[in-house]
């Protein structure tokens, strides 16, 4: 999970020069072969969602979709996952932005420790975060449920927001804030009119990534969910029911779409933000 965080900020450093050399065929084959390897399980799921077998006939169909939507357990799992991801993202937005605003221009003792602490929930294997939260819940006699899932998800979502927002803050010239103050705006006005518009796409991109991360998180959720069934947990339980495979395929495809769309959107939102209004010299 750690690299997901890293790459959400790093833009590809394309060389400006075009590559003119001709590649050896074996290299090209290996490269495209690697891509095929990366995609064929995903394509396999996508195709399976539309396929039905009837005796010896195999045909394309949409009937599994209506079958899946008619299932109450599927719908409630989707609803729970959407709710958890939204609330966790909101909490993470507030805390991540506060941390970013506090840390981007200041240097003080313990700053490194704070940033390390923010990264820790995703740098450590998920099972450690999960079991740690579970053991704390046991000690405090907290019953697992909706809010324990939200708390665990918000913990590792903060860094997604923090990373996106702090990068934007660093590129935003502080003179904009000073100019606004000089023109008579107070702190709140400056925040609303100057800082927030500059941050908007970074906030949105971070929120989308956090949402996607929370939506398909399984490892930590298993420990903090108790009897609640989020969509990934539903899918995991489904693996023990091979007869239900057709429904599982459809739901698997939907999970993939619900996470892929925010990822692509976040990618385009943060593209080309290197030059922000006012930072050009």
């Amino acid at each position: 999970m750690l690299y997901k965080i890293k790459q959400s900020n790093i833009k590809m450093r394309f060389k400006s020069k075009a590559n003119n050399d001709q590649s050896p065929t074996w290299l090209k084959t290996l490269a495209y072969g690697g891509l095929v390897f990366l995609h064929f399980p995903i394509v396999f799921i996508l195709i399976n969602a539309f396929v039905a077998h009837d005796g010896n006939n195999t045909y394309l169909t949409l009937k599994w979709f209506s079958a899946a939507f008619a299932r109450e357990d599927v719908m409630s799992a989707i609803a729970l996952s959407l709710k958890v991801a939204s609330v966790a993202t909101l909490l993470a937005l507030v805390m991540g932005t506060m941390a970013a605003a506090a840390l981007y221009r200041r240097n003080f003792f313990g700053k490194e420790a704070i940033t390390t602490m923010l990264i820790l929930p995703i740098a450590l294997p998920g099972i450690i975060t999960g079991i740690a939260l579970l053991s704390a819940m046991n000690i405090l006699k907290i019953d697992p449920g909706f809010w324990t899932i939200v708390v665990s998800h918000a913990t590792f979502c903060v860094v997604m927001i923090y990373n996106n927002v702090v990068a934007r803050f660093r590129r935003m010239p502080h003179s904009l804030v000073e100019a606004s103050m000089d023109l008579g705006a107070d702190g709140f006005m400056t925040f609303r009119r100057i800082i927030l518009p500059q941050l908007a796409t970074a906030l949105l991109a971070g929120a989308l990534l956090a949402f996607a991360l929370s939506f398909d998180e399984l490892i930590v959720t298993i420990f903090t969910a108790g009897h609640e069934i989020t969509l990934p947990i539903w899918l995991l339980n489904q693996l023990a029911r091979p007869r239900d495979a057709a429904i599982t395929n459809v739901v698997a495809m939907m999970v993939m779409l619900i996470t892929a769309i925010p990822i692509i959107a976040a990618h385009y939102l943060t593209r080309g933000t290197e030059s922000i209004a006012g930072s050009g010299k």
Partner: peptide, 28 residues
């Protein structure tokens, strides 16, 4: 060796499976 467009394509093509749901990939 990739042309500019090809590099963009590879980048997205690597990103998407990376972000695709862990449990869905395992299930597949």
């Amino acid at each position: 060796y990739g042309s500019r467009a090809e590099r963009g394509f590879f980048y997205i093509a690597v990103m998407l499976p990376m972000w695709a749901s862990y449990i869905v990939k395992t299930y597949a």
